[in-house]
């Protein structure tokens, strides 16, 4: 669609949001992520691409410690959010995840009303003092997720009754309702049809004004369309990390080139 306008937009935010150094991830005996260093910028969309099983999702889940919920997973190395180590003993993953929200591959609205889905995060984190404020957050989040117009008349209807694309935007609204600083998206469009995909991609571009967005995708076109920075993962290694147009037009590593030209993957 509007590839040109997106890629031409200069990367203007230069302050570093997340810094990862020497990150290693083990699943039991398997060494899933090897020695990854990466700097994720604020107010930027960063795409992780690579063949399936390359570790891009695993690394993404390290950024808000979602891997903690898997018993056999161990993470080593250093990941800093605004200069603070998120694997520090003092960090409560619950507090971290309020700052680093996540959207998943398959839309997973809770079996509650649309309103309650969005209000869930603010409620548990105690972000509001009264119902009016909560209403305000719900509306703002749904607006930012480009869903308000479609659902404003049926906020009490179950979230599971929406279409696939609407459900995924509802999940995005749910994630941004806690006003995170970083939004992680794990292949957010892989379960959606092309029209819904286009809507969500457009939304991602707009989210960039408020958040730092990290998106894992298996579609190189999508990475090219929505991101400013791209990281290419292969067999658990971060092979190349650069400006998106640089990666797609002039990759330095032969493996990256093989992948984007379709020879591996």
């Amino acid at each position: 669609m509007n590839d040109m306008t997106l890629t031409e937009r200069a990367v203007n935010a230069t302050d570093c949001k997340i810094t990862a150094r020497n990150v290693q991830v083990y699943y039991g005996e398997t060494h899933a992520i090897k020695d990854v260093d990466v700097d994720i910028l604020d107010k930027t969309v960063t795409a992780f691409i690579g063949p399936s099983g390359c570790g891009k999702s695993t690394f993404l889940r390290c950024l808000n410690r979602m891997n903690d919920t898997i018993d056999i997973c161990r993470v080593k190395g250093e990941i800093l959010l605004d200069g603070e180590d998120i694997y520090d003993k003092r960090v409560d993953p619950v507090q971290l995840r309020a700052k680093v929200g996540m959207v998943f591959q398959k839309p997973n609205p809770f079996p509650k009303s649309i309103y309650d889905n969005v209000a869930y995060g603010p409620k548990i984190h105690g972000l509001t003092r009264n119902r009016a404020e909560l209403d305000e957050i719900v509306e703002a989040s749904l607006r930012k997720a480009a869903l308000w117009g479609e659902v404003k008349d049926r906020l009490q209807a179950p979230g599971t009754g929406l279409s696939g694309g609407q459900q995924q935007r509802l999940c995005i609204a749910r994630a941004i309702a806690t006003s995170p600083e970083v939004l992680l998206m794990d292949e957010p469009c892989s379960a959606l049809d092309p029209i819904a995909t286009a809507q969500v991609e457009e939304l991602i571009d707009e989210l960039r004004t408020n958040f730092s967005v990290v998106i894992v995708t298996h579609s190189m076109q999508q990475a090219a369309r929505v991101s400013q920075k791209t990281a290419f993962f292969h067999l658990g290694n971060l092979v190349e990390y650069d400006e998106t147009d640089q990666i797609f037009t002039n990759p330095t590593d032969p493996r990256t080139e093989s992948y984007i030209t379709g020879r591996i993957g």
């Binding site: 808000n64 979602m66 919920t69 993953p93 619950v94 507090q95 971290l96 995840r97 309020a98 700052k99 929200g101 996540m102 959207v103 998943f104 398959k106 997973n108 609205p109 809770f110 079996p111 869930y120 995060g121 548990i124 984190h125 999940c171 749910r174 994630a175 806690t178 992680l184």
Partner: peptide, 20 residues
């Protein structure tokens, strides 16, 4: 996926259990 959705927002286990 429902648990992931809840943890991803920063809910604790007991909040996830009780509310989701």
């Amino acid at each position: 996926s429902l648990r992931d959705g809840s943890y991803g927002i920063g809910a604790t286990k007991s909040e996830t259990i009780k509310q989701v």
